[in-house]
């Protein structure tokens, strides 16, 4: 479903006259419905890989082949901006610790919009959005509030609700549980498990990957740049 081949990315910071290599020679893949965890120390390039797959970073070399539902295999690095925007609306989701908020947009609107982008009708989208907010324990009293007033945990749960409500075909998770308490983490695990049952393919970075035990099928280790089975 997703295969990354010989991926490399460096960043040139012009005013410092510096070029820093973030990753090189990355090869990994994940089968449809599989869950790949990426492990490695901080600064080893884990997020760079995820952001390259999502198309936020523009890599220097390699290929990122994604088997899309609509058009079959495409190279994320080669497709047009509009094709990528479309894939993000319909097939590929991304969750990080940071919530992108719009002014004057309530939490319910935020999650609803995520479904409207996929072409779900308004009534249905709102109903599904409410179910998702409930699942992530966003109290009903907050549904019509602006997320910039939420606590860190609430923001994050909202962020996850927004990405998972679409049941994307491929979901990229960049340490989504990093700042959560145990109860919230359990919720996230539950949601991931449910998405997996429904066939979503997942690639995730978790500082405590043990927490995903039983869900994760394989692991990519940045220290030796190799894949292994999760239980090996």
């Amino acid at each position: 479903m997703l295969s990354v081949e010989d991926l490399s990315k460096s960043f040139t910071i012009h005013h410092l006259g510096q070029t820093r290599e973030a990753i090189s020679g990355i090869n990994l893949n994940v089968a449809q419905g599989g869950f790949l965890g990426i492990v490695g120390r901080s600064g080893s390039g884990k997020s760079t890989i995820l952001k390259s797959i999502y198309g936020t970073y523009r890599p220097d070399g390699g290929r990122i082949i994604y088997d899309s539902k609509e058009n079959g295999p495409v190279d994320i690095m080669e497709i047009s901006d509009h094709a990528l925007i479309h894939l993000r609306k319909t097939e590929i989701g991304y969750v990080s610790q940071f919530l992108k908020v719009m002014p004057r947009t309530t939490s319910l609107e935020l999650v609803t919009q995520s479904l409207l982008e996929m072409g779900v009708g308004l009534v249905e989208a709102e109903a599904q959005a409410k179910t998702a907010l409930e699942h992530y324990d966003i109290p009903e009293s907050l549904w019509n509030n602006y997320p910039n007033t939420f606590s860190g945990g609430e923001k994050l749960r909202l962020n996850i609700a927004r990405a998972t409500v679409k049941a994307p075909r491929l979901l990229l998770l960049d340490e989504p549980t990093a700042s959560l308490d145990h109860a919230s983490k359990v919720k996230v695990r539950e949601a991931i498990s449910k998405l997996k049952d429904e066939g979503t393919t997942l690639v995730g970075i978790f500082h405590d990957l043990e927490f995903m035990e039983g869900l994760c099928d394989s692991v990519y280790d940045m220290s030796n740049q190799e894949m292994r089975h999760a239980l090996a």
């Binding site: 960043f11 012009h14 005013h15 952001k51 936020t56 523009r58």
Partner: peptide
């Protein structure tokens, strides 16, 4: 030019970097 998050998170040109930073 690019998708907005590309411009914001991976600016290529020195001037764009100055704007973003």
């Amino acid at each position: 030019s690019g998708i907005t998050d590309q411009i914001l998170e991976d600016p290529q040109h020195a001037y764009t970097q100055q704007l973003v930073y």
